[in-house]
């Protein structure tokens, strides 16, 4: 019996000498976005029935909002003016944990990404998305789009939500109608970005 017990203890000693946890490895949270910005660049917009044609102009007016920090807030007091009657191209730039631009990854995965822009007063703007995949395919995601301001408004807080949708949910979205759908939670998924910033639609030349 002693023989068996000795063998047992030797075996166990050999097995247990390496019983120590690994030194932890810091993980950079790839799920978290490092920084984001939204840029409004003035373009020429020409109405064609129920839609607009947009063309680039020289020396355009550019408004840029940067979102940084853990809560992705714009600078205190940041306040963006867009003029009534003008059209703007908006571009969302997203940088990952390493400072690399990643917004195109949303476009490439267009089947489960869609942006909702909330709290803009009804009938004050015309919005269309104009995203393009690397292979040139036109898709509707909302990383790039155009906005034409139709009416003036007082300052309001806009939410830009990039929704990471569950499989097949994107098929149920109508980009023309749903880009400002306040019931966006009914499109099941999670938020990749939830940005809040102040907008003010002003008449020509009016500011603060």
């Amino acid at each position: 019996m002693k023989k068996y017990i000795t063998i047992l203890f030797i075996s166990i000693f050999a097995l247990t000498t390496a019983c120590k946890k690994d030194e932890p490895t810091p993980e950079t949270d790839q799920e978290e976005v490092g920084s984001a910005s939204i840029t409004f660049t003035e373009v020429a917009g020409e109405a064609h029935g129920d839609h607009y044609h947009y063309t680039e102009i020289e020396n355009p007016e550019v408004e840029k909002i940067d979102f940084t920090g853990s809560q992705m807030l714009p600078p205190v007091g940041a306040h963006t003016h867009l003029e009534v009657g003008k059209s703007y191209r908006f571009n969302v730039t997203i940088k990952d944990f390493a400072g690399r631009e990643t917004q195109q990854s949303f476009v490439e995965k267009d089947d489960n990404h869609f942006a909702f822009i909330l709290n803009i007063p009804e009938d004050h703007v015309f919005v269309t998305y104009s995203d393009k995949k690397n292979d040139g395919t036109k898709v509707k995601v909302g990383v790039q789009g155009y906005i034409t301001v139709l009416k003036a408004s007082s300052t309001f807080t806009t939410r830009y939500i990039m929704r990471h949708l569950n499989p097949k949910v994107k098929e149920t979205i109508d980009p023309k109608k749903d880009w400002n759908n306040t019931n966006f939670t009914s499109f099941t998924g999670a938020n990749d970005l939830d940005l809040k910033f102040d907008l003010h639609f002003t008449e020509d030349g009016h500011g603060h």
Binding site: H164, N166, V169, T172, N183, T185, S186, T188, G189, A190
Partner: peptide
């Protein structure tokens, strides 16, 4: 269950109010 994949409290409350999956 994919319908339980949630983003935030806002999502949970919306689904509770609906009573069943949206999809």
């Amino acid at each position: 269950f994919q319908g339980a994949h949630i983003g935030s409290k806002e999502d949970i409350l919306a689904r509770i109010e609906h009573g069943r999956p949206f999809e």
